[in-house]
């Protein structure tokens, strides 16, 4: 039992769970703000998965401070650098989408996407 419930299973479940919930919100929700929240959740889930891919058991943060134990005891630093970039990019997209949502609300008076259907076939 202890072999299944360990930190890796937990983090993997959390990341896949966030991605699944986020994409479900985008597909099935009608309110625009909830769709944007779903995108944000999916982004967070993927970022957790990227950091997880650099994890090595029982090792510590890759910072060479005064009391550090040398590079044999550190996790992989590259995925953390990738996640720094990915978080900022996700934040940029969310900010832009919220600005578009504000303008859409001004034009249509509602945030319900089934009513924002000016462009037809």
């Amino acid at each position: 039992m202890n072999n299944i419930i360990n930190i890796e299973t937990l983090i993997f479940t959390a990341s896949i769970g966030l991605v699944v919930i986020g994409i479900y919100l985008v597909i099935a929700e009608k309110n625009l703000i909830k769709i944007i929240i779903g995108l944000n959740l999916a982004d967070s889930g993927v970022n957790i998965f990227i950091v997880f891919s650099g994890y090595i058991k029982n090792k510590t943060a890759p910072i060479f401070s005064k009391g550090s134990l040398g590079f044999e005891n550190m996790v992989d630093p590259l995925p953390q650098a990738l996640v720094l970039t990915a978080i900022v990019i996700g934040f940029g997209v969310t900010a832009l989408s919220l600005a578009i949502a504000i303008r859409l609300y001004k034009h249509y008076g509602t945030l319900d996407i089934s009513k924002i259907r000016g462009l037809k076939w």
Binding site: P62, F64, P77, A81, V88, V93
Partner: peptide, 26 residues
């Protein structure tokens, strides 16, 4: 001393330039 910083700024500095551009765009 911070290995992640050295990756973000030096080894993968081009990605950081792209990220700064993305923030600028939004």
């Amino acid at each position: 001393a911070n290995a992640v910083t050295s990756i973000v700024v030096l080894y993968r500095g081009f990605d950081t330039l792209g990220e700064v551009t993305v923030l600028f765009l939004s």
